[in-house]
Design a protein around this nucleic acid. Structure first.
Length: 239
DNA sequence: GCGACAG
DNA sequence: ATCTTGTCGC
């Protein structure tokens, strides 16, 4: 069965919003797979001067978090940044990098929200549905909702609530840092996503899949060749 | 009308 | 996101 029917990305903000409302009921909530061996992370970087967008997708082996594959895309910016419509700006380049993957991940982590979105269909949900892969949104700032403050101790978390609905979690990935905001993308749920995000966190606030993608995309933007496919394992490359 | 507002 | 040095705090 092919649930991921594609739509045009060449739309107006009004049409983009309508697409989100329509596709939002494609999102499925369920626990993450019991056996996860590959995790992917994606990130995008911009060059306002040259009007270029750069995307990088990394695939890490889990739970080791060693790099397995890395793919990229560089194209022209086609959509403005509008809060709530991030997928229409970052989706295309991430999709193009994703399509080059030889190793299909079991779970995909995105830099942005999933259900913690005004129409419950943020970037993580959008791409999760299009790729038809379990996905999780891990954002660094809130878009919608509020949460009760908590002690900044690793592992602590607090519900992100909007309109009486729990749309995600504020999660402490490390001690004494700001929390990251975790929400369901597609085929995932809050309890298993919370544990998984913590399991993907190494030495920094941002979990490794998206952190590695962030490092890669910045290297890409400054001219580096980052595509890579490791048959066996490999540690990092930058740092 | 006013403020908020993923990256 | 991006432009950017030093600096306060653990």
């Amino acid at each position: 069965m092919r649930p991921a029917r594609f739509h045009s990305w060449n739309v107006t903000p009004q049409e983009a919003s309508a697409i989100q409302s329509t596709l939002s009921d494609k999102v499925e909530t369920c626990p993450l797979p019991g056996k996860i061996q590959l995790v992917a992370g994606a990130d995008v970087s911009f060059d306002t001067g040259s009007n270029m967008v750069y995307a990088a997708v990394t695939v890490l082996r889990f739970p080791e978090l060693t790099l397995v594959e890395r793919r990229s895309a560089a194209e022209t910016i086609t959509f403005p940044y509008i809060p709530g419509l991030l997928a229409f700006r970052e989706g295309p380049p991430i999709l193009h990098a994703f399509q080059q993957l030889h190793n299909i991940p079991d779970v995909f982590m995105f830099d942005g929200h999933g259900l913690a979105h005004p129409r419950r269909f943020g970037l993580a949900s959008h791409l999760g549905v299009l790729f038809d892969l379990p996905s999780i949104g891990v954002a660094k700032r809130v878009l919608v909702g509020s949460f009760d403050q908590m002690k900044k101790e690793q592992g602590n978390y607090s519900s992100l609530i909007e309109k009486g609905e729990e749309v995600g979690l504020a999660l402490q990935t490390k001690d004494n840092v700001n929390p990251v905001y975790v929400s369901i993308g597609h085929k995932s749920d809050l309890p298993t996503s919370r544990e998984f995000v913590l399991a993907c966190t190494a030495q920094y606030r941002v979990p490794e899949p998206t952190r590695q993608a962030h490092l890669a995309v910045n290297a890409l933007r400054t001219g580096a060749e980052i595509d890579l496919d490791v048959g066996g394992d490999q540690t990092t490359l930058f740092e």
